[in-house]
Amino acid sequence: MRAPPPAPAVPRAAARQQRLPGEAGVWAFVFGDMMVFALFFCTYLFYRGQQVQTFRAAQAQLDRNLGAFNTLLLLTSSWLVADAVHALRAGSPGRAPRRFAGAALCAAGFIAAKGFEYRQKLDAGLTPASSDFFMYYFVFTGIHLLHVLVGLAVLLWLRAASRRPGAGAADLRPFENGAIYWHMVDLLWVVLFPLLYLVG
């Protein structure tokens, strides 16, 4: 009887490399949310096409600097979260709580800046009823802001979980799940910002 051939080394290495981060359910939720936002983005551009000049004039009333500042905040928070997950995976969770706390601070900064921006708009008499552009602006950024609020709670929970002894050693998936959600919040803003504030 012949001995079975030895298992090829390369596919096993590849299988180790190709690992699903987090859990399938989180990815299903994330891709579902990304499809909904993709529809939002297309709807916005479709209706913009019907009244380009009106949209352009309304868009000029947005604060691009504040929008860009918020983008930098979310990108930085995403990087901090990615670094925290790397630290937990490497078995050196020491810096993870600080990274999650930093990310939560960025999220709080985003919420504060958005609140300030909404206040500015409402004070100037700009409401969702002002024009189609401002209806899209308030609805889309509002739904995104809800995602940020949920994300802030997730980040605070991740910070607390990462402080427990042996965090991530037994199961890294809760951290990966939270991180995937937070990166999605960042990703959606990265498209929403140029669409609403810059593309004229």
Binding site: Q18, V81, A82, E176, A179, M184, V190, P194, V199
Partner: peptide, 22 residues
């Protein structure tokens, strides 16, 4: 600007969300 936005979104997906190694 639109292409750059989606390029950035892809970077986040592939590197931060680790879809590139999934």
């Amino acid at each position: 600007l639109l292409c750059l936005a989606l390029f950035k979104a892809r970077l986040i997906l592939m590197h931060f969300m680790e879809a590139g190694r999934a």
